[in-house]
Nucleic acid binder design. Structure first.
Length: 345
DNA sequence: CCTCTAGGACCCCAAGTCCA
DNA sequence: TGGACTTGGGGTCCTAGAGG
């Protein structure tokens, strides 16, 4: 099975720290046995607040308007889906993307092993965790959205749930949750098919604070690979979907800056009630400028490793570059492509 | 052996409330 | 106002043990 090699290569490249054990399975389902999928997130939901940051059932109806996009999010009586519930979507999307990248047939219904989901999203596997997983499914299915966001080439104006349906397949004895069939909403599914997804840091699942997760998403979406992204606290508050007053929100941001464990990005407060995000990496070696890659090099990398997120590759490579003492590169493109080729084998 | 269940103790968070 | 405290629910860690 050729995937074993791929997994080993990725495992080695990602570094040993906390990497999940090899739990490949021989399966008939085309999506479930791909465990090494890089976490993907849906771009539309990253840009607009859909998920609740609250730590208790959130009955609010969210209305949001930004650059002509309107979203109304209506919770069920169980409350809005939380940002933790989103882990399930991220997992599903990652499975779909992995299947797409492997050239397999995909459908809106994703079959997954509950245990895989829990371990992949850095959770425990206690009975309580399964119970909460179940509640998360219910919140996801119960949260209705009305939007005119365009994903792929279609503009959706109708209402739908975050997931359309889910089914737990239990073993007859013991009542254990063995596998789950999740049917994604059409909107999400189209987003995946059109590949409007971004790679998340694996450390995302280690973020505990809901607000930290949300802020990371926003930074990933808006800052991306740019040298920096500056945003007002006010706008950040609006984009995050936090229900806190601005002064409390600002305090939260300051606490986050203090803690400093936002993956990939550095956060700084600037005069005028602004927050600036900048990608980490070249920051340690500020004397040396990080190598700039041409678009051609990225295209070539895409060709060498089809299906992989080249920006993630670039970020990994920059990390390697920074760790090796940030040497000055005469031909960064060639160095990068050499590294990619080696990795593609 | 690994996976999973069960349950208790404890920790954390965002939001709500109080108070100078 | 703005800081400090409280609240209510979720998340985490831990142990012991069952089941496949």
């Amino acid at each position: 099975m050729s995937r074993a090699g791929t997994q080993a290569a990725i495992g080695a490249a990602m570094g040993a720290g906390g990497l999940l054990p090899d739990r490949m399975r021989q399966g008939d389902f085309f999506v479930c046995d791909i465990f090494d999928a890089i976490p993907k997130d849906d771009i539309a939901s990253m840009e607009h607040p859909i998920f609740s940051l609250a730590t208790r059932p959130d009955p609010r109806i969210l209305d949001y308007e930004h650059n002509g996009a309107r979203i109304t999010v209506t919770p069920s009586v169980r409350g809005l889906a939380t940002i933790h519930d989103k882990d399930i979507l991220i997992f599903c999307i990652s499975q779909l993307m992995a299947a797409l990248n492997a050239g397999r047939q995909v459908s809106r219904t994703v079959h997954l092993k509950a245990h895989d989901l829990l371990t992949a999203t850095n959770r425990e596997t206690s009975g309580d965790a399964y119970r909460r997983l179940r509640e998360a499914f219910e919140r996801l299915a119960g949260t209705r959205i009305t939007t005119n966001i365009v994903t792929g080439e279609t503009e959706t104006t109708t209402g739908f749930g975050l997931i359309e349906g889910w089914e737990i397949v239990r073993k007859t004895r013991g009542g254990r949750m063995v596998s789950v069939a999740v049917t994604l909403s059409d909107w999400l599914y189209r987003a995946v098919l059109s590949k409007s997804v971004l790679t998340l840091s694996r450390d995302y699942f280690r973020l505990r604070k809901p607000l930290e997760r949300r802020i990371y998403e926003l930074a990933r979406k808006h800052c991306g690979r740019q040298p920096s992204w500056t945003v007002s606290v006010e706008t950040l508050l609006k984009k995050s979907g936090s229900a806190s007053p601005r002064r409390v929100f600002r305090k939260m941001l300051r606490d986050m800056i203090e803690a400093g464990h936002l993956p990939d990005y550095e956060m700084v407060e600037e005069p005028g009630d602004l927050i600036r995000f900048a990608p980490r990496g070249g920051l340690v070696e500020s004397a040396a400028r990080p190598p700039v890659l041409s678009k051609q090099a990225l295209d070539e990398a895409r060709r060498l490793m089809p299906g992989r997120d080249v920006y993630a590759l670039e970020a990994d490579w920059r990390g390697v570059w920074a760790r090796s003492g940030a040497p000055r590169l005469r031909k960064p493109d060639a160095a990068f492509l050499g590294w990619v080729r080696k990795r593609a084998e």
